[in-house]
Amino acid sequence: MIRTSPSRLPLYAFVVLAFVMCALPADAHLNSTGMGPFYDGLMHFLMSPDDIVPVLALALLAGLRGASYGRRALFTLPVAWLLGGLAGLSAMAAKPHPFIAAAWFLLLGGLLAADAKISLRVTTALAALLGVYHGYLNGVGMGQFETASVAILGLVFAIFVLIALAAAFVVHLRANWARIAVRVAGSWIAASGLLMLGWAVRTR
């Protein structure tokens, strides 16, 4: 009589079935990090390319111009975003216009690609306008949640960190090729804006 060990298949099947039956949460609407509204807002910014790209472009532009420009953008943009977001919380509705999103890409990407010698005042004005506009849209979108103001704080924190990192990185670039690489990134952003403009007026 040959003795064989009993099959382990039922055990494997049970283990796999247990994993299969494990229900995962649906990530609908707002990205839920499970760590509270602050991190939800932070992740919302990091997962929104239409927000993150103009902020990155502004940070790179300010960094190319110098440390004082970077410092101005570092504080102006998050504050403007916060004010816009808080204003948006009480607004009824607002629909982001694709032309305006494309225009931001074109403007900031174009300035970056051209290494435009803009003044500190213009940089401040751009940061304030960008912050108020995008913050307002974020606020309107988050207004339906009770903890929206905390989420906006998280979002603003993410913007602050992104500007600090990106601008500081570019300020220290001395090699010509490295500064050109930053400008090439600007040309890509502007080119994306042009295509987005085409999508917005697409006739077919």
Binding site: A113, I180, R183, V184, S187, W188, A190, A191, S192, G193, L194, L195, L197, G198, W199, V201, R202, T203, R204
Partner: peptide, 22 residues
């Protein structure tokens, strides 16, 4: 070396915009 690769995507995007607009 950097002007040509910058010019191409920018103008190509303009052409793409014209194509999208019909």
């Amino acid at each position: 070396i950097w002007v040509l690769p910058v010019a191409f995507p920018m103008v190509m995007a303009f052409g793409g915009m014209l194509g999208l607009m019909g």
